[in-house]
C-alpha cells in the first residue's frame, strides 16, 4: 500500500483540547460516582472525599464546554447542528453497520460526513445526557436542603440512568476509536488532529469530497498537504 503523505485536518486544536479535558473530567466523575453505585466499594466514599472530588471534576465538566462555546461559538453551534442533522446516509449506515463492524465488509457502507452515523449517535448522547448529568447533579448539589424529597429521589434516579447509558457507551466509543481493526486513524484524528487523505476518503467520503469541492471553488488556498477544515 502506498502511503500517501497528504493529510487532512479533522479536528481543530481547541476541539481536541475540549475533548481531552472533558474526557479526563468524565473519567474522574465515572470513578468517583462508581464508588457510590457499587455497594462493595462504598467504603471508599467514607468521610466524603470521593464526593468532594466528584464536585471538583463536575466543575470542569460544566465549565469546559461553556468556555469552548464562548471562544468558538461558530464551531460549537455547527457541532450541535451536526448532531441534529440526520439523512439517508444514516439509514444506510445503520443497515451496513453490522457487516461493516463485524465482517469488515465496506461494500454496503454509504459515504459518511465529518462524523459517521455512529459517532453522531454518541455525540448526540453526550449532549443529551451531559445536560441530564448537569441538571440532576446541580439539583442534588445545591438544592439538597430546599428541593422536595420526591424531586431529589428522581434526580439520583435520572443521574444513574445517564450514568448507565453513557458509562456503557463510552466503552463502545473508546473501543471503536482505538481498538476496532477498521478504525485505523480515529485516534490519530483526535490526538493529532489529522487523518490521511486516504482514510478521509474511505471513512468520511462525503465530508472529504465537500472539502475538495470547496477547495476548487474557493480562492486559491495554500496548496499544501494540509487541507484546512472549518
Amino acid at each position: 500500500m502506498s502511503q500517501s503523505k497528504a493529510v487532512v485536518q479533522k479536528y481543530a486544536r481547541a476541539t481536541r483540547l475540549l475533548h481531552h479535558i472533558h474526557t479526563a473530567a468524565f473519567i474522574i466523575l465515572f470513578i468517583t460516582g462508581l464508588v457510590l453505585f457499587i455497594p462493595q466499594l462504598g467504603f471508599l466514599a467514607q468521610d466524603s472525599w470521593t464526593r468532594i472530588v466528584h464536585r471538583l471534576a463536575a466543575v470542569v465538566f460544566i465549565v469546559a464546554p461553556i468556555v469552548y462555546l464562548v471562544m468558538k461559538p461558530k464551531a460549537a453551534l455547527r457541532a450541535v447542528a451536526d448532531a441534529c442533522t440526520w439523512g439517508t446516509e444514516d439509514v444506510g449506515w445503520l443497515k451496513a453497520a453490522p457487516r461493516y463492524y463485524f465482517l469488515c465488509d465496506e461494500e454496503g457502507m454509504p459515504a459518511q460526513g465529518h462524523m459517521n452515523t455512529g459517532q453522531k449517535l454518541w455525540w448526540f448522547l453526550v449532549i443529551v445526557f451531559g445536560a441530564v448529568f448537569i441538571v440532576t447533579g446541580l439539583v442534588m448539589w445545591f438544592l439538597k436542603t430546599v428541593a422536595p424529597a420526591g424531586l431529589l429521589q428522581w434526580m439520583v434516579f435520572a443521574h444513574d440512568v445517564a450514568f448507565i447509558v453513557t458509562g456503557a457507551m463510552v466503552f463502545v466509543h473508546v473501543y471503536l476509536g482505538v481498538i476496532h481493526p477498521m478504525m485505523t486513524e480515529a485516534w490519530q484524528a483526535i490526538s493529532k488532529g489529522t487523518v490521511s487523505e486516504e482514510y478521509a476518503k474511505s471513512h468520511h467520503g462525503l465530508w472529504y469530497h465537500e472539502q475538495v469541492k470547496e477547495e476548487n471553488t474557493a480562492p486559491p488556498p495554500e496548496p499544501k498537504e494540509v487541507v484546512e477544515v472549518h
Binding site: 448507565i164 466503552f171 463502545v172 473501543y175 481498538i179 476496532h180 481493526p181
Partner: peptide, 19 residues
C-alpha cells in the same frame, strides 16, 4: 448493560480481527 456491552465488544473484536 455494562457487562453485556463489554462482552459484546470482546466478541466483536474477535470476529472483526479475523475478518
Amino acid at each position: 448493560v455494562g457487562g453485556l456491552t463489554l462482552l459484546g465488544l470482546a466478541f466483536n473484536f474477535i470476529i472483526a480481527r479475523e475478518a
